[in-house]
């Protein structure tokens, strides 16, 4: 009986977050906004295909900010990368996706 009132409490507390949340970034303001918008668009467009989403982000970033961007889209992964300064953006999106965008040519 004691658990029952707690369960609805949890349910009410449980909020599904879908907004993009930047975890780490040293991009310039303009670039960061662009990257976030782009990843949102890509992840919404290819919601069930991370590869295509990553490809779209990478290609668009390459066009806009010069080549050799790398994009990782996934739900659980670990990474250790070397990036050119002021070109990294690591963000969460949709509550379960982690997107890492960086440049290294």
């Amino acid at each position: 009986m004691a658990e029952e009132p707690a369960a609805p409490g949890i349910v009410t507390e449980k909020v599904v977050h879908t907004y993009p949340l930047i975890r780490h970034s040293d991009m310039s303001e303009e670039m960061r906004v662009e990257a976030v918008e782009l990843s949102v668009t890509a992840c919404e467009k290819f919601s069930n295909n991370n590869e295509l989403a990553a490809r779209m982000v990478k290609e668009t970033m390459d066009k806009k900010f010069g080549p050799a961007f790398h994009v990782v889209v996934g739900e659980s992964y670990g990474f250790e990368i070397t990036y050119e300064c002021t070109t990294i953006c690591y963000l969460y999106f949709g509550g379960n996706q982690a997107i890492c965008i960086w440049k290294c040519s």
């Binding site: 659980s76 992964y77 250790e80 990036y83 050119e84 990294i88 509550g95």
Partner: peptide, 24 residues
């Protein structure tokens, strides 16, 4: 060469969730 730096992180559902909660 342009300056470079290293960055590493782990993306796990639990970490993402926690960070969202924190931010919220």
């Amino acid at each position: 060469p342009p300056p470079r730096a290293n960055f590493g992180a782990t993306a796990l559902q639990c970490i993402i969730f926690d960070y969202y909660q924190e931010d919220y």
